[in-house]
Design a protein around this nucleic acid. Structure first.
Lengths: 254, 254
DNA sequence: CCATCTTTGTGCACGCGTTCACAAAGACAT
DNA sequence: ATGTCTTTGTGAACGCGTGCACAAAGATGG
């Protein structure tokens, strides 16, 4: 970004690889923990261990930020916390709306990690009129009719979708039309959005299926060494596939 | 391709790239939707659009499965649903335990997508004695003292951790010791596990921070074209860092 | 049976991300 | 000051994942 200050090798925001960006929050968390224990400096080796990554990767990641460590010593914890926070945009306050206040929406609303990380729940929105006015996590739920107004009044640019799958795209469209440019989607749907809008997806069902794949593979290999066949456990070979479920958000039936 | 058609070209489980495995559930969902609409066949182009991926990628993904499409026609929906389900291990029943029945744990327990995808909630476990016996989603919560017994009695190999961060590693260790080999972790902690155990992490806080990064970048660029400086919005430049929050699961305060 | 047309399966090239390994930078002791 | 020792920052090699572009397969119609 050209932010500029003369030197400042970094600030090449656009130069920061996605993979690195995705790890910065991890480093930040580990650093925050160190900071709370008043640890003044940390080596790449130590921090990498705490974050669960390779130390060379961590150093390279930091090099994109232009973060300066001190050779022979390590990194200054406080300085790094500040730099990463700044890079991630956490030094400012991000108002967030949560749409769809079912089980999951409520869980999200109650999540304490919001406020302490630069995020603020500006509003809770649900389509059910019966929910309107009812407080969840101390915040009154508002009806989705007022979605546009809420977004605009609060200058919201980040929206969280926790509605059933069927409603997700419509909600998404309205959020985008109202000015939201970043969306965190918990509904099991592929959202289509115009250029310039970022979408991230969290999908419990997918995560579990990936685990099942590996689990099956482990079982299969085990069996293979003794048997040569399939997992011993359940040989239930239904054609599977039954209830239509593609209609509620991962993790939350309305 | 080499697969030689002795039928059964697949089963090269170990040959399937991770990236492909991660997309299979996506394809499966799209295919299930088609199946429900009784669509008999689908082209890679159509299916790719529905799943939000590139059609060449999709074809290559399927080629790892050894799935057979028909040139000039496309893929048989039902056949593909079965093949992918099978490959993912969803034709068998996976008993799952959820540890930590707070807001999120309850939301997970209520998630309808479990049963319909080959997963079954075998038990809900919480450390709070006051929760014991209390039914959540129709399943009585059990005390964590009985964790090992529950795992063994039910032959559970997949565990979901939705506890506060402080308890996660300990719970993880007990799960692993009891025989769990796949863990879905919602707590904001890096879990360390022995070889052979898979861990997948879902972390709301990280997802939001990644969105914030891009959001800030957008704002910065916008401003740059007119101004040259930083986002106009909030120039709040605190040293940031405040409440200790690293102590509850992403999305769920006990 | 042959021609045409559609759609798959994949060889290939490119770019990103990871990791190694090491030179340079600096702290610290003497 | 000078030497030693630690730890960073990064050049370079490698491997994975992606996407293009096309040949081969097979359906379909004449």
């Amino acid at each position: 970004m050209a932010t500029g200050r003369t030197h400042r090798p970094a600030t090449r925001s656009r130069g920061i690889p996605e993979a690195t960006v995705a790890r910065l929050p991890l480093y930040l968390r580990a650093l925050t923990a160190l900071s709370e224990r008043s640890v003044p400096t940390v080596s790449s080796e130590e921090l990498a261990a705490a974050a669960g990554v390779n130390s060379a990767k961590l150093r390279k990641d930091f090099s994109y930020l232009g973060s300066y460590g001190t050779r022979g010593v390590g990194y200054d914890v406080e300085y790094l916390v500040y730099q990463i926070s700044r890079e991630l945009g956490l030094t400012q306050d991000w108002p967030v709306v949560i749409v769809g206040i079912g089980n999951l929406g409520a869980a999200l609303a109650n999540y304490g990690g919001f406020a302490s990380r630069g995020f603020r729940v500006a509003a809770l929105i649900d389509a059910d009129p019966a929910m309107a006015g009812k407080p969840v996590a101390g915040i009154p739920v508002q009806h989705s009719d007022d979605l546009e107004k809420i977004i605009q009044d609060n200058g919201v640019s980040i929206g969280v979708i926790a509605t059933p799958a069927g409603a997700a795209q419509q909600v998404c469209d309205r959020l985008v039309a109202a000015g939201v440019t970043s969306i965190l989607n918990f509904a099991p749907t592929v959202l289509s959005v115009p250029d310039g809008v970022d979408v991230r997806k969290v999908d419990l069902s997918i995560e579990l299926q990936i685990l099942a794949f590996h689990e099956q593979r482990k079982a299969g290999e085990e069996a293979a060494s003794a048997d040569g066949a399939l997992p011993a456990a359940a040989a239930r070979s239904d054609s599977a596939d039954q209830g239509p479920d593609g209609d509620m958000p991962a993790v939350m039936p309305a």
